[in-house]
Design a binder for these strands. Sequence first.
DNA 1: CACCAGGCAAGTA
DNA 2: TACTTGCATGGT
Length: 216
Amino acid sequence: MSGNRRELLKEIYAGLSAFFGPQGWWPAETPFEVILGAILTQNTAWKNVAAAISNLRRHDLLIFENICRVYPQHLAVLIRSSGFYNQKAKKIKNFCNHVLTKWGGSLENFLALDLEPLRSELLSIRGIGPETADSIILYAAFKPSFVVDTYTYRIFSRHGWVEESIGYEDLREYFMGALDADLALFQEFHALIVRTGHLYCRKKALCSGCPLNVYL
DNA sequence: CACCAGGCAAGTA
DNA sequence: TACTTGCATGGT
């Protein structure tokens, strides 16, 4: 049964990869920028996140040591366009304070942890949930933790491949239990799923030619 | 005008 | 354990 799942996933990945080509995610220049983007994009369109990151860049705040010194209120003003800005400013500061107090300010050392210890420590930080944690692990720490998002859930449940009631951890295990722990594969697969979701989830267009050929 | 976007935490039963 | 609600801007 699990071999079947592996074949299904391999087939979907191959199809999406051939259809869309390489995605080259995450759209950021440094690990810390990935982390900021992962928090800022929580339930928010990426376009609004991009504007916030652009503001941070203008203020030279895409650097860990710099953002550590800024007040949450000031941060909130700069990331306003990403929505939930008061919460998100606090979440970013929570992350920074964790690295400062527990890792002596060495983000590099923190991200060098093995996958499982890193994941549980990320999840202990207020504001870092499972998707944000896995995004950070996959695209900032470069370790193969599969990222599940709403598109993943919608696409796979709508096709009847998983139960509608499935939760985050079980859906993540659906992928990780069937696929080899391959960094590039996980990075591309998630990016391709999001690409598909952007085009077809809750849109009127049908998936003409797309391997996931169903009205979502 | 209503609805949603690459979630998460806190509160309730 | 399993819902529900607050958070908030900007695009369709």
